[in-house]
Design a protein around this nucleic acid. Structure first.
Lengths: 212, 212
DNA sequence: AAGTGTGAACAAGTTCACAGCC
DNA sequence: GGCTGTGAACTTGTTCACACTT
């Protein structure tokens, strides 16, 4: 077994990757851990340590080749292929997610949109049909997806997640405030703006108002 | 100076709080750290330790009064008052955020919606006027807000954030993929679905497909 | 001279385990 | 008897500092 890589390291890699792709587009050739860290608010040692889990990508005295490092991160993160994503729940939020232009350029193809509301199912968005959520499991059997995005009302979240998992989806991004359960082999992340706001108000409460 | 409370503890409190309010609504009287932890996937020791930073809310041999603990968390997190929120950028995502019914019930009032697009500014959403983004700073001077939610195109994110900070906003939720800078006295959180997906694909890449 | 890669030192965060109280 | 609150032990994650490479 190779040494175990901390999850917190994995979570930082997309951050590095995003900056590197920008630098790559700008034609920047080489960058040091110090400069990378400066841009991202991370210490240079942290960046070197994080990268050292995966290999030796830098050159002493020079730094990292932007192009090489971006490519290595693509391989590490599995971004050298396309991923099939289904979105379940096409309300206002699901609609915004489905139409978000940032996914496609990063290799995430939305291959299915589902809603249980009969007034919504059968309609289209961006020229793509919204399928009745009843078809979800059968559709996944016929053409599997890798990732599911859940934007249904909270009370249906667990059901939808169970269906996705039965259908072979191995990663789920849950936009619902409900905490859902999955088996250990499925990746799960929650996005809940209220939770973010509530941890911010803790600090606001402590800070004196800076305005006159 | 009181002992410093780790940020990671603060980030868990809204989770505890959400479960407690549900239990409170169900009329549950008392709960042990063990049972709380079971629901949330957190160890009982962790919950007790986290809460012990703020006081002694439990009773030995019994557990925690659901009502008391929910109330204490409200006070700790600053949820015993209402918070004024402005949303900047009323595209598809900003619209979904503005209309999200989950904010109001948790004490977050959306008191302003702004967009720089002249075709959008002046129109209404849920009966609320969308103001031209040019008015943002002046409006904040006249009637301050506590929190800003940014859902503009990435290239305008830093400008909008600077305007919000000048206007006295002390916490910012950035839905933009751009990493923005703020002074140390301003709270900042990023929500970027692509970053979440990219750290999940790392794991997907490693896991063998479980389907036939 | 500059900057990586990394073991070692340090810091932070989690879990243990048990005294104390209900 | 059951469960909290909490120092102490442990584990995990971060930073230091320097040998080494270009």
């Amino acid at each position: 077994m190779p040494i175990e890589i901390p999850d917190v390291v994995i979570d930082r890699l997309p951050l590095y990757y995003r900056l590197l792709t920008r630098l790559e587009a700008e034609g920047r050739g080489v960058i040091s851990s110090h400069e990378l860290g400066g841009e991202l608010g991370v210490t240079p040692a942290q960046i070197r340590k994080d990268l050292s889990y995966f290999g030796r990508f830098g050159k002493q005295g020079r730094g990292y080749s932007v192009q090489r490092l971006a490519q290595e991160l693509r391989l590490i993160l599995g971004l050298n292929r396309r991923w099939r994503v289904v979105v379940v729940g096409i309300g206002r939020l699901g609609r915004a997610i489905s139409s978000y232009p940032g996914f496609e350029g990063q290799g995430f193809d939305i291959v299915g949109r589902y809603d249980a509301n009969p007034a919504v199912a059968g309609t289209s968005i961006d020229g793509q049909e919204i399928r009745d959520a009843r078809h979800l499991e059968a559709d996944l059997s016929a053409a599997p997806a890798d990732i599911g995005i859940v934007a249904v009302p909270a009370e249906y979240a667990q059901d939808v997640v169970d269906t996705l998992v039965r259908g072979g989806v191995r990663a789920i991004l849950n936009y619902t405030p409900a905490r859902v359960q999955v088996t250990a082999n499925v990746e799960l992340k929650h996005i809940n703006p209220v939770v973010f706001l509530q941890s911010m108000t803790y600090h606001l409460k402590l800070t004196a108002r800076s305005r006159a």
